[in-house]
């Protein structure tokens, strides 16, 4: 009963938690059932990376949905989605460093810094790390006005993630589709565009 009334009040949060946790559960399930027969490292790397991007896009979509559609409740899941995105970024990096390169530092250094496609991903990951740490309320208070400025770096992280994706594939179709969505979500934040679109709505 408690659960049902919580779900009624907070169905959106429940949905956000499910969106954040189910891909991980699915990945573990697939791994345990031997779905990754040939190249599990690549499979885990691409799945955690793709999930991180999807969650980052969802978190970036919250603000425009609020301003354009007036749905206030989405703002309550924005931080959670961002943190889940960071969870998958962390898993993605650990897969790369640990499962793929086995923490062989002599190989790992060049692998990160000499590979064009890795750099934007690595930078996006560092940004999300800082944002994840400072997402706690304490930091929010401590940083005051600067907190908002700092957290605008998430736009940069979104762009870097797309560049990372674009540079690692031979076929650019999928990253370009995600890129279009990220571009739209960023354009909708431009004050003039935002006003124009919300005027149309009224």
């Amino acid at each position: 009963m408690v659960l049902i009334s919580w779900l009624k009040r907070s169905w959106l949060q429940a949905l956000a938690h499910a969106t954040g946790l189910l891909p991980l559960a699915w990945l573990i399930w697939d791994h345990l059932h031997g779905a990754f027969i040939v190249d599990p490292v690549r499979e885990i790397t691409t799945r955690t990376g793709r999930t991180a991007l999807v969650l980052l896009v969802l978190s970036l979509a919250c603000t425009p949905i609020h301003t354009l559609l007036g749905l206030k409740s989405v703002l309550r899941v924005r931080r959670g989605l961002g943190l889940y995105a960071f969870l998958y970024v962390a898993l993605h990096f650990l897969t790369f460093a640990g499962l793929d390169y086995r923490f062989q530092w002599d190989l790992l250094g060049p692998a990160i810094f000499d590979q064009l496609y890795v750099l934007p991903g690595f930078a996006a990951g560092l940004i999300l790390l800082v944002l994840a740490i400072t997402s706690a309320r304490g930091w929010q208070k401590r940083l005051g006005r600067n907190w908002k400025r700092l957290h605008r770096l998430v736009y940069l992280a979104g762009i870097l993630a797309i560049v990372h994706f674009l540079w690692l594939v031979k076929d650019t179709g999928e990253p370009l589709r995600y890129g279009a969505i990220v571009a739209l979500l960023l354009i909708l934040r431009v004050p003039r565009v935002r006003e124009a679109v919300s005027n149309v709505r009224r």
């Binding site: 190249d39 490292v41 690549r42 793929d100 692998a111 000499d114 496609y117 890795v118």
Partner: peptide, 10 residues
């Protein structure tokens, strides 16, 4: 866009 220094042996 990527290094050819190492390879993953499938």
């Amino acid at each position: 866009r990527w290094s050819q220094a190492t390879e993953r042996l499938i």
